[in-house]
């Protein structure tokens, strides 16, 4: 028992040893380590996963889903590919600027947007949903869309949200319950491989 504790803490800390990298000392070590390992990028990530908590993402721009949807846009206008493959696209700054070159250019958030583009930078959107690598889940959007699952079923009603929030907790229970209701496979390798 005690031995188990030592081994476990050792494993958590051991997997996060930041490697020395003097050539890029100006950057936080955890991001520019010359090696890549799996599981958890930092000690923080490991601890958060262990406790089952996720920090609330801080978005660089207070993008409002509500306003865009109210203006008649569809989810798939920006999140292209959601019906074709595993992931939905998060648009790049160039895509936003196709409209915001002319629309609402005086708003402070749009000025931020334009500033990113002027600096040659993309917007560092932070993940809201998505599975940790240690969850070993290979989720694929396309079959869910084809099966007629509404976006809101997993992402909440975006018409009421400004900055996207994690309205639905994607626990395994949540997934399995819906799979059972719809006679979809609940074999482990349906999602875990």
């Amino acid at each position: 028992m005690i031995l188990g504790v030592i081994v476990l803490t050792g494993a958590i800390l051991g997997r996060t040893m930041p490697a020395d990298d003097s050539s890029t000392a100006s950057q936080p070590a955890a991001q520019t380590s010359p090696i890549f390992t799996t599981a958890h990028r930092t000690v923080g990530d490991a601890v958060r996963e262990f406790f089952g908590t996720r920090t609330k993402p801080v978005q660089p721009i207070a993008y409002t889903h509500k306003v865009h949807l109210a203006n008649g846009m569809q989810c798939t206008d920006c999140h292209v590919g959601v019906d074709q493959g595993p992931d939905a696209r998060i648009p790049s700054v160039n895509f936003c600027m196709t409209c915001h070159q002319v629309i609402a250019t005086d708003k402070p958030e749009i000025k931020k947007l334009a500033a990113y583009r002027a600096r040659g930078e993309d917007i560092p959107w932070q993940r809201v949903y998505g599975f940790e690598p240690s969850a070993h889940v290979k989720f694929n959007h396309a079959p869910h869309i084809r099966a007629g699952v509404d976006c809101a079923k997993c992402h909440g009603d975006m018409h009421t949200q400004t900055v996207a929030e994690r309205k639905v907790d994607h626990t395994m229970g949540f997934c399995v319950e819906c799979h059972r209701q719809n006679n979809a496979s609940v074999d482990c390798v349906t999602c875990h491989f």
Binding site: I12, T16, Q27, P28, A30, Q31, T32, R41, T42, V43, G44, D45, A46, V47, R48, R54, T55, K56, P57, V58, Q59, P60, S92, V93, N94, R117, G120, E121, D122, I123, P124, Q126, R127
Partner: peptide, 20 residues
């Protein structure tokens, strides 16, 4: 582990992203 909790999910602590 408590000390290591800050710094994630926040763009200020990350590398910049170039436009694709």
């Amino acid at each position: 582990a408590a000390a290591a909790l800050e710094g994630c999910g926040n763009p200020d602590h990350q590398l910049i992203r170039f436009i694709p």
